[in-house]
Design a protein around this nucleic acid. Structure first.
Lengths: 195, 195
DNA sequence: CGGCAAGATGACACTAAGTGCCATATGGCA
DNA sequence: TGCCATATGGCACTTAGTGTCATCTTGCCG
């Protein structure tokens, strides 16, 4: 890795850390981009070259690893149906996205993701949905196949999100994987009634 | 209705119409709030008293009729299970929300809702979800009941949205109700596998 | 009818996010 | 070393959104 690249990574991390620290102390709206820039030791203009918007510092769509997700979706495990596989991939994806932040900032991340940045975080879910749809039906598919894939994919995405929310509200002490499995079970049992 | 109230309604409608006309011609980002205000014949400051943000002109959370939704959710029909009932209520709710706009603007509304205003429109879906959750489990419920209700409610909401998207992409010529029913079927059959 | 109080309006100034432009600085490489 | 590509930061600009205040309109009551 060249010096330039290392510097880029360091600067990016400095911005993220500075932002999260300030968000934790003063809230999202209470922190200006100028505050973040000077705390991170860069110019305001430079910050906007790293992150096109203030929201992106927390929730950057570029952090969604499309290729990684697709290949994870490709590996099928024994006795694992579509829904379980999708839930598993989503779980690891969310865990990885979480890991970008220091543990001290993860609560802040979640609080803001479901507060002032809810819109942005829902857009990220849509991106995840699109990757799943692509993996399920490919690019060429009938309208009805597309509809089916979209519905199922998005249902899984929101189920995982609901599970994570429930897990955090319960103090992050339970086993997250269990909660996600439980959400999947609700999906199946709730819709199984009159299939 | 007093003169004041009538004026308020007329002004609000003038703003919405002016905005949609401009959005249709110049796009959302290409239209400034000042443009809208002068096209509607009001001051910029007044516009912001009617709509707290530019986004609200298109997608106003106040247009979600919580009480109406709750009472519609309360009326159970013969042979109708939970999922069908929720889908039915969502369908009429979305139709009503659509009807706020002149037919000429409805395509614009949908295009923007799934483009630049996707975040906002997803937040409105969350609001609908919350109403459904409240109707399903009431205010007091165990964590797991809440999780179940959230998962099912949001799955229905996104299913309806996917159905509407599919319907519009197909040229709005099909029967929307049929497409929504079809999305519901996908939900049931997709998750029925290994319940 | 006259006049007052509440509410609506618009002007002005201000903050903050985001962008274009340009001069300068710095790393990569011959 | 010296050159080129890229990174940086400063500056000015646009636009969304807010606080404040003077002015105007509506509703109402004597």
């Amino acid at each position: 890795m060249s010096l330039r690249q290392r510097k880029r990574v360091a600067t990016e991390q400095a911005i993220v850390d500075a932002a999260m620290t300030l968000f934790a102390r003063d809230g999202y709206a209470g922190t200006t981009v100028d505050d973040i820039a000077s705390a991170a030791g860069v110019g305001r203009r430079t910050l906007f070259r790293y992150f096109p918007t203030k929201e992106d510092i927390l929730l950057d769509p570029r952090r969604l690893d499309r290729q990684g997700m697709l290949s994870a979706l490709r590996e099928r495990r024994a006795g694992e149906d579509d829904v379980t596989r999708v839930l598993r991939v989503l779980a690891t994806m969310r865990a990885r996205a979480f890991a970008v932040f220091r543990p001290a900032h993860q609560r802040v991340l979640h609080r803001l993701s479901h507060g002032e940045l809810a819109g942005r975080s829902l857009i990220l879910m849509q991106l995840a949905r699109d990757v799943i749809v692509e993996s399920l039906v490919g690019k060429r598919a009938s309208r009805d196949e597309r509809l089916r894939a979209r519905v199922l994919a998005m249902a899984c995405v929101v189920a995982v999100d609901a599970a994570i929310t429930a897990w955090i509200e319960a103090g992050m002490s339970d086993d997250l994987e269990k909660v996600i499995t439980q959400a999947g079970r609700h999906l199946r049992e709730g819709f199984a009634r009159s299939a």
